[in-house]
Design a protein around this nucleic acid. Structure first.
Lengths: 213, 213, 213, 213
DNA sequence: AATGAATGAGAATTCATTCAT
DNA sequence: AATGAATGAATTCTCATTCAT
């Protein structure tokens, strides 16, 4: 028997690490952090509990990485849109559409990433994500204000409220449990986009009238 | 020691039940659901742990009632404003101001009531609250649309987004940890009110022009 | 059914606490700290593992108390002898005899108390004991030197060496596993006493000759 | 990769075996048996954990051999002094000085070899060492008694007590944590030697007078 | 009705040992 | 022969719930 010292071994390792991460993410997506015990993660990943600790020093760090990794992907997509073509309104709408479409696919996970509290170490990762997400929206809003496309407003508050608004509408209890058709989903997303655009882009009537005079 | 079978007993019971509920609410307000163990609730209420189970079948039902009870009070205040005098915009602003002022005073509790995940049974109570809160805002929005004060919009989505927007801006991690002065608080509240009013009341420019023609 | 609010309840509590402490001490006496798991202590005490934590905040504190409690008793006996009648030599001999007689009865425990390393919190308790034991012997040695009954010597070193000497002779591997008869025990103790007395009380020959001239 | 079937392999094996033993000893010397996990030993030896099990059937046997091997070296040094020139007192003093000087250099290791409890299998090795060490001192004491240089005494007890005395004074918690200067060390060693010599060599006053008549 | 001590299942983490490669 | 990833039993500690008094 020969030893294949190829990257096959590394891949296997990476594979198991990924399987653990994926299992953790799936459990969070289904039942939140509360239901994701190390034993459950290990079982779903098809490894022994001890194996989890070969790849992650603690449960907290495992889930911190779940948050980081998942968040990073979302963030990249949303952030990428800032640098695309179009007016601030267009790009804001595009960013929300992108985020919303993904969040609808993994509602429980999106909620966990944004709202569910867990232990402090995991929350650090989430806080980073939310701050980053907030900054992305702050950037768009600032650009809109500078372009005189958006009215003056407290940028930080608007950004936070934006995130809250679309997260609640997407994953909150007022949102239907499951949207059967893609049309339903599109309608929901467009309603959210409309709400958000008005919130940051609209000028109160009085002002509009004043400007239109 | 003998028990006097008078109505004093009923009162005593009612009293004890209330004390347990109040203790539970206070603990949630301080440290969230996580830190509110049955033993801690009992200790704060000045009863034995076993006594809690005479009044509530389980921890989950106790906290479900904490959520219901507390929510009911908030709901009444907000709902009361709907039926007061003024335009939909005025009443919407007033409702948000009232809610925000209270939430800022008890941020941890407000957060727990709206966002902190607990077991499913408690979540049912929270779901009811949020639906009820949503319905209140739906009512105002509908009135505004009928009065042609607000543009047409998906009322349910807007209501949910409203709740999400001001909750996130009030208690989310993007919101400053502590606002030193009352001016700071007022400024935050007014920024939120501005955001929310634009979101539901504003007409996109194009439409405004179209209408004004 | 009436409630007996007598000290019977307190006694029961004290009783259970004692039972846990006794169980812990017995396990340490038999197999050292290593074999005394919380589960084993609970089982031997006839309680559930959780019950141990009603009485002791952690395993470490439980065993720290085992050490303190047991040590205190030994210390009292040895220290008491300091203030009895007799020359320093007599009292030193009496203290060693008392300690030795007790140690022979619970050899494994005596060893654990003096030598076995465990976690730092427990070691603090043991360190206190050993320091206290050391001080007792230092006191006697100092008195003997002042009375010109003992030769000048490094008191701290002598005290430590004394403790080491009789502990090793009593519980070390060179000591027979079990001494069948009381005569055997007495012989061992007297041999130890002789060793210790010579060690602290004797004047080297040269000096003796010098003095006798 | 092919294996050269030369004696190089045997050497390599012996080499690897030694490296594992040395790594184990170093870890024990630094942090005691508790901190020396099989993984840590393997890492320090530069081999895989599984390899340890090719050379030693279990962790216990590995550490038993660490004890044996290390002890053997100490024993040889001390034993060598027995057969050197000089009176029993001189040789006893020289043996203690030699042992003490080495123990002070590796206090943690000396402590582990003599006192730290581990599993029974390792303790068997330690027991052998202590018995052997005891026998060496028994031999000197016997010679001293035969030469009428030492008073009659229970040789086995004295030997054990000797070992206990100097080990405790050297590595026990009553011994200072760290001796800054070489003078401090020398002073400690001489105090110990003095104690031990008095203990085995001195004649109680009454007896001395009797003999000198 | 009230008590609060007792319960015991469940969670995270460690590590000696094994075994497929 | 060597590797080192994987195993899983064992350990400490928590806390909702029960029940004898």
């Amino acid at each position: 028997m020969t030893y294949r010292k190829t990257e096959g071994i590394k891949e296997q390792l990476a594979d198991k690490r990924s399987r653990i991460l994926n299992a953790a993410r799936r459990l969070v997506a289904e039942g939140g952090f509360q239901e994701a015990s190390v034993a459950a993660v290990a079982a779903l990943a098809g490894v022994a509990t001890g194996t989890v600790y070969r790849y992650f020093p603690s449960k907290a760090e495992l889930f911190a990485e779940v948050v980081s990794q998942t968040s990073q992907r979302e963030l990249e997509i949303v952030a990428g849109i800032i640098f695309s073509e179009g007016t601030p309104s267009d790009r804001l709408a595009a960013a929300i559409r992108a985020f919303a479409a993904r969040a609808l696919r993994g509602r429980r996970l999106a909620y966990a990433l944004v709202a569910e509290p867990v232990d402090p170490e995991v929350d650090v990762a989430r806080l980073k994500y939310r701050r980053a997400l907030g900054r992305v929206f702050e950037t768009i809003i600032e650009q809109g204000i500078r372009a005189n496309e958006f009215p003056p407003q407290n940028v930080a508050v608007s950004a936070a409220a934006l995130v809250g608004a679309f997260m609640e509408a997407l994953v909150g209890p007022l949102s239907p449990e499951s949207l059967a058709t893609d049309e339903d989903k599109t309608a929901l997303i467009e309603a959210i986009v409309g709400f958000c655009l008005r919130a940051v882009a609209c000028r109160p009537k009085g002002e509009v009238i004043a400007l239109s005079r």
